[in-house]
Simulated scan of single mutants.
Amino acid sequence: MKTLDSSAKGAYLIAVTPFADDGSLDLASTDRMVDFYLEKGATGLTILGIMGEAPKLTAEESRIFVRQVLARVNGRVPVIVGASAPGFAPMRELTESVMELGASGVMVAPPSTVRTDDQIVAYFDMVNETLGPEVPWCLQDHPVATGVQMSASVILRVLKNSPTCVMLKHEDNPGLAKLSAIRAAGERGDAPRVSILTGNGGGLFLPEELTRGADGAMTGFAYPEMMVDVVKAHAAGDVERAHDIFDAYLPLARYEQQPGVGLAVRKHLMLKRGVIASEAVRKPGPKLSAADVADIERLVARQTRRLQEIGRSGKA
């Protein structure tokens, strides 16, 4: 497995965790899901993230799931594992376990308990100590989920202190000016130049973020080919084509990003696409109503027509 480094780019797709109807891990669907992401052109995968329901898994389930994904990927693309934890002991234990299994690196977000700039910097100094000098890691900046606001200047302080932090997952919103500032600092040599991959709710600002200097996307959507194709078109210099592709998927991507119900929407669509066998979200979790399903069907039909209009297949 390739070790994560600051040259990472493309589309790192955030995977869901498939469950059976009874809430148990579905490893057969996990294999199909990995195949699906790779067939759609994933540059890398990120597992046990916020949309991967990581807090609902036991430590043993986490290891089983990671082992299954890594075995199926079989070194074809890098795999990043979410390692955020309430304490440093479980963070170290999970990190050591997944790196031994062949993960490329881990991702860490700040806990909700850190508030001041100095507290944030001190926390990530302890992350560096916990992970050690051999484990590359990704800094996750996702204030909506963590409640922690990290300014560009704070992130640059963290990067200067963290030689093994090789990637920033940028998910602040609004965050375009922040992204520009971090990228400019790296280009000037004021801070290490790290890979910047963007999330922001299914990539809702992906074309603009790529124009501001992002190296790619790290997010999830039931149609991951959107991220793959937008990143490819933008990298090829066809910015208008990137926007056209993005616009065709935007209504459904927006719908999937509703707080609370979004994961249920994504799993429903992945079930319909034949990727997973059940749309189950582990409890506590939402269930879709008949009205929700009707909305989704309408949006998928409109998306299919629009993709055909711009010369794309629009097939499931």
Rank of each mutant, 00 (worst) to 15 (best):
V69K: 04
R72H: 09
S84T: 15
T58I: 04
R92M: 08
V66R: 05
R67C: 06
T58Y: 04
V77N: 08
E93S: 14
I64E: 04
S62M: 13
F65M: 12
G82S: 10
M91R: 12
P55C: 05
E61Q: 12
L57C: 04
T58E: 06
A71G: 15
E93W: 05
A59S: 13
A85T: 06
A83R: 06
V73R: 03
P86W: 06
M91G: 10
K56R: 14
P90Y: 00
T95F: 01
R72I: 11
F88L: 11
K56C: 10
I80G: 10
P55S: 07
F88Y: 08
K56G: 06
A83V: 09
P90H: 05
V81P: 03
L57V: 04
G87N: 13
R67K: 13
P78W: 03
R92W: 04
P78T: 11
R92E: 11
S62Q: 15
R67D: 14
M91N: 11
R72L: 10
A89S: 14
E61K: 07
G82Y: 01
G87W: 06
N74S: 14
V66H: 05
A85P: 09
M91L: 15
I64D: 00
S84H: 05
A54G: 07
A59P: 13
L70I: 04
S62P: 02
P78H: 07
R92D: 11
A89P: 10
Q68T: 14
R76Q: 14
K56S: 14
G87S: 13
R76K: 15
L94C: 02
M91H: 12
A89W: 08
P90E: 08
G87Q: 12
S62I: 00
G87A: 13
L70D: 00
R76H: 07
S84K: 02
E61F: 02
T95M: 00
I80Q: 10
L94F: 00
E93A: 15
N74P: 08
V69S: 02
G75Q: 11
G82E: 07
A83Y: 07
V69G: 01
A54S: 15
P90I: 05
E60H: 09
N74W: 07
V77F: 08
I64K: 09
E60F: 04
A89Y: 12
T95G: 07
P86K: 08
R67E: 14
G75S: 07
R76E: 14
R76A: 13
A71R: 15
Q68A: 15
T58H: 04
A85C: 12
R67Q: 13
A54V: 12
T95R: 05
I64V: 15
F88P: 03
V79Q: 05
A83I: 08
L70Y: 01
I80V: 15
G82P: 08
F65N: 06
A54H: 11
L57I: 07
E93G: 10
P78K: 06
G75L: 09
P86Q: 08
E93I: 10
Q68K: 14
K56Y: 09
R92Y: 08
V73D: 01
L57F: 00
L94K: 00
F65R: 10
V73F: 03
V73G: 00
P78I: 09
A89C: 11
M91T: 12
T58S: 15
G87Y: 09
A85L: 08
R72P: 05
R92L: 11
I80C: 11
M91V: 12
S62V: 01
